[in-house]
């Protein structure tokens, strides 16, 4: 067990190293020197950056410096603005995205799994049909359409929520719903399918044949099994929700990491792009790692030797 976890941690570290290397190679294989792109840099900025990253040095040395800086928690400085660092951007933007993504994840886990179970138990009845139609919409309507519609109805028409910023809890309702809409729909459908599948299994018939009540059969025997594939999806989902969404943050005027990341891309701020990409990568790898470890407790069939 401990051995399994150690093994998974080691493979997570290797994955992160791989992501860093790949990011480095990609950024360096884009034609042109980052220095020569876009508008001319202020000489002192260019000098600082060149000194920091040794851009005149051989690539291999640059790579090693890059690895060294990152392992010390320094994710690079901006090419575009003096004093702006990746760490700063993460510190500024990430709390908003974490809050939106976190609440959204919680909402999806509770509502998505709940809706999925109800849908499965009422298969082909009215609640199921309604939820399937709604979840089809949720999975297909783009989030900017949904966000705009949300603001139009609840801000413009009803005046229930503010339209811009992140001051109060009311500001978060829209972003939390919009960012999670697709995953909510997906988790609902995944749970429904999985519960329906598990209810067909022989061990459910065995449970009924023991004389257990339908409630015990469903909660104890069906759900525990049905949620295994859902948990698999949840890890990467939470990671992607927490790393923010450009569209949703833009529409609701929140300076989260999603929109800061996109801004750095449109600014061609190479070091920032690298830094945030690696940060996201680490985040997703850790989320997957947590799911893998949780899995051992959920599914005893997982072989961990």
């Amino acid at each position: 067990m401990a051995k399994y976890i150690v093994k998974r941690i080691i493979s997570a570290i290797i994955t992160i190293w791989f992501i860093m290397t790949l990011t480095f190679i990609l950024m360096n294989s884009i034609p042109g020197d980052p220095m020569s792109m876009g508008k001319a840099l202020q000489p002192e900025v260019e000098a600082a950056v060149r000194a920091k990253y040794g851009l005149d040095k051989p690539l291999i040395e640059q790579y090693l410096t890059y690895l060294k800086n990152y392992t010390h928690g320094d994710f690079g400085v901006s090419f575009q603005k003096i004093g702006l660092t990746t760490n700063r951007i993460i510190a500024d933007g990430f709390p908003y995205s974490l809050k939106i993504g976190g609440w959204s994840s919680l909402f999806i886990i509770v509502a998505g799994i709940g809706f999925g179970i109800i849908s499965a138990l009422k298969q082909n009845k009215i609640p199921d049909r309604v939820m399937m139609i709604v979840s089809t919409l949720g999975a297909t309507v783009p989030s900017f359409v949904f966000a705009t519609l949300f603001l139009y109805v609840f801000n413009r028409k009803l005046g229930w929520v503010p339209s811009f910023g992140a001051g109060t809890w009311k500001h978060y309702i829209g972003p939390v719903l919009c960012i999670g809409m697709f995953s909510l729909a997906y988790v609902t459908r995944l749970t429904r399918t999985s519960v329906l599948d598990v209810l067909q299994q022989d061990y459910i018939r065995t449970a009924r044949a023991k004389g257990l009540s339908e409630g015990v059969v469903i909660i104890k025997h069906a759900l525990r099994n049905a949620l295994i594939p859902v948990v698999t999806y949840l890890g990467p989902m939470i990671a992607s929700l927490i790393t923010g969404s450009f569209v949703v943050e833009k529409v609701f005027g929140i300076a989260g990491i999603g929109s800061l990341f996109t801004t750095s891309i449109t600014n061609r701020d190479y070091t920032l792009i690298m830094g945030i990409t690696v940060f996201f990568g680490i985040f997703i790898v850790i989320a997957t790692l947590i799911v893998d470890v949780l899995y051992v407790f959920i599914d005893p069939r997982i072989k961990y030797d």
Binding site: D202, Y203, R205, A209, H221, R224, N225
Partner: peptide, 15 residues
């Protein structure tokens, strides 16, 4: 009344 089924591989709850 108790019952046992054909396929022992799938008749027990894996978890």
């Amino acid at each position: 009344i108790a019952m046992i089924f054909q396929d022992p591989m799938t008749s027990l709850n894996p978890v």
